[in-house]
Nucleic acid binder design. Structure first.
Lengths: 341, 341
DNA sequence: AGCTTAACCGGAAGCGATTTCGGAAGCGTT
DNA sequence: AACGCTTCCGAAATCGCTTCCGGTTAAGCT
């Protein structure tokens, strides 16, 4: 249905040269007289010729497409990561193909397979972590497909990682709460099926231990990365016989859920309960009170991921990159010393 | 670098048939004996063969990719639209290529050109509206490329539209404020460079006129679709000699900005000032007070857009579709009668 | 038995680019 | 004048698939 678009042949004919020559000026290879080059360029412009990347891809085995498999584009943090990827991909004339897994384990595998069958030149994946997924990644990497993983690690020369120091971030957050005087600090943890939460738990634990505190398993609850689930998790916490005086949530979405649950219970933040989140999404500023949280450079993560992926595509035996970006505690008004000691 | 992947030839050899036959079972065309078909399928499975869509695309002139040009994937409303598109695209084995314009006029044109040069089978675009963009869309549609536009209209047999009754939604919102007793109702309008705000202004105006009120140009301010810009716009409103008692914002982002500005000015919501937004993003629930807003079925918009695009791709001379979905006022706690009359 | 027809399958062309190989022309050197 | 190098360009093969056209075989009909 789409009308015939002009081919390299027609350009060649018009310029009075061979396809070979046209191809050469297109990819400016080899030497070509300034004059013929000019003639070809003129023909290209007159005809409005645009090379067909499909045909090109067939022979070069490159598509100039990268794939992004993401759990949930609706999470503002991940949307920002996507924006970063989009930026650098576009600036390198790469297109981005997105696939959402909605946190369903087997859909990660499905996504990777799908995008590879579409012949993307490389893949960025975040953030689930399943054994099956890791196996597939390893397998595909062994077949030469480059990967960059965000926030998780797989050991193979064709897979790089960009992540953030989430453990350090969690440590900062928890320490801050401790320094305010809190002793019963709950942690809303990423549910095991999300992968991804190990570092934060470690940072949380270390901070507590440094203060000579035991971690109380009652104070650790699992949640999906959503407001609703954060709400549910917090309700469980509030029902405890001796509830926490502070909640450290695995991300801002769950923290927002916590805020809503706390408010619904008729308690006040931060007077009755402090809460801190993770990610510093834009909406962390618009809660009441504004959310204390650990910021992650989402845009930079995306850009870095895309940048290293493009490098890996360009140079096949590049050594694996391991980039770790910093997290910073940003203190707003959802935290204060506990009411009574 | 990517290892050689097996081709249809090897499958054919292994199954002891011709490529033609393999191709036929792949696309289940023509008649093939159950027995040969089984043999071919077995060969495919044994070899783990996956057809190369690049090669296929070269001859069929279809890529099974659709393009999505979006102003800002970071806007939760648009992220939800994207999710809807992703859903139905994936379920039809189409992949989605996303391009962001960041609301820069010329980048819309760039995005459309880019995606078409990549040979996508069709395009979904939202929401900017520039003359140049419209011209290009018209031009490309005339070349047979199918489009579906979200929230805007271009008249051509190859371009369909899915939109929402924003005028009716704005009318409901404004009427509600009027019924509460408000008379000075400001409107934060989508800045002209965003396109897209005409309907809302109309609904707003009609509601006012129905109450016998003039629209006061001082009460209409323009803003980009961001929290920050909504904040700035609201600050201007608050500096008015007789400020409004209610603000109807063009979307939830600007409404959130309004809430922040109002609070920063030491005023209370809804006692001193009511605010209503548009879209009903998830974070409209997490502001304090929760935001009264007009909901739009973002997910459905995306799904409908993708669905009609796929239909247009499948049947070249399908009549244009015009789908209009409903908006509903959802009343939360950011609105109340004005303090004094 | 002989002929038509339908069912099933294969050969080869072609999609639009890149790339290999080699040829022609121009130039300097001996 | 002959030779060898560059420099510039073209012919043709190739990538992996679909599709057109036609051939073979078996079934059906008279």
């Amino acid at each position: 249905m789409v009308e015939h678009s002009i081919t390299i042949q027609e350009v060649a004919k018009r310029a009075g040269v061979s396809q070979t020559t046209v191809s050469r000026v297109l990819n400016n290879k080899d030497e070509i007289t300034a004059e013929t080059r000019a003639r070809v360029i003129r023909a290209i412009e007159q005809l409005g010729y645009v090379p067909n990347p499909i045909a090109r891809g067939l022979v070069t085995n490159h598509t100039a497409m990268i794939g992004f498999v993401v759990s949930d584009i609706t999470n503002p943090f991940l949307a920002d990561v996507a924006r970063g990827i989009l930026h650098t991909a576009a600036s390198h004339h790469y297109s981005l193909s997105i696939f959402m897994t909605e946190n369903e384990p087997q859909r990660e595998v499905q996504a990777i397979r799908f995008l590879i069958s579409r012949r993307v030149d490389g893949l960025i994946v975040t953030p689930r972590e399943s054994d099956e997924g890791n196996r597939l990644i390893l397998n595909m990497a062994a077949h030469g497909h480059p990967f960059v993983l965000i926030g998780r690690h797989v050991s193979h020369p064709r897979v790089s990682t960009v992540s953030t120091s989430t453990a350090a971030g969690a440590y900062k957050a928890t320490s801050y709460l401790l320094s305010l005087g809190h002793r019963r600090i709950a942690h809303i943890q990423a549910s095991p099926r999300m992968g991804y939460g190990r570092g934060k738990l470690r940072g949380y634990t270390e901070a507590l231990q440094e203060y000579g505190l035991q971690v109380d398993p009652d104070l650790i609850v699992a949640s999906d990365f959503s407001i609703e689930d954060g709400q549910r998790a917090s309700e469980r916490l509030l029902r405890l016989s001796t509830p926490p005086t502070a909640i450290f949530a695995t991300n801002d979405l769950t923290a927002i859920g916590a805020i809503m649950a706390i408010e619904a219970a008729g308690l006040r933040i931060p007077e009755d309960l402090s809460v801190v989140g993770f990610d510093d999404i834009i909406f962390a500023r618009s809660t009441r009170p504004p959310l204390t949280t650990v910021s992650q450079p989402a845009l930079k993560i995306g850009e870095a991921a895309a940048e290293t992926l493009l490098q890996m595509i360009r140079t096949p035996n590049m050594p694996t990159q391991e980039m770790i970006l910093d997290c910073d505690l940003v203190i707003r008004q959802s935290t204060s010393p506990p009411r009574s000691r």
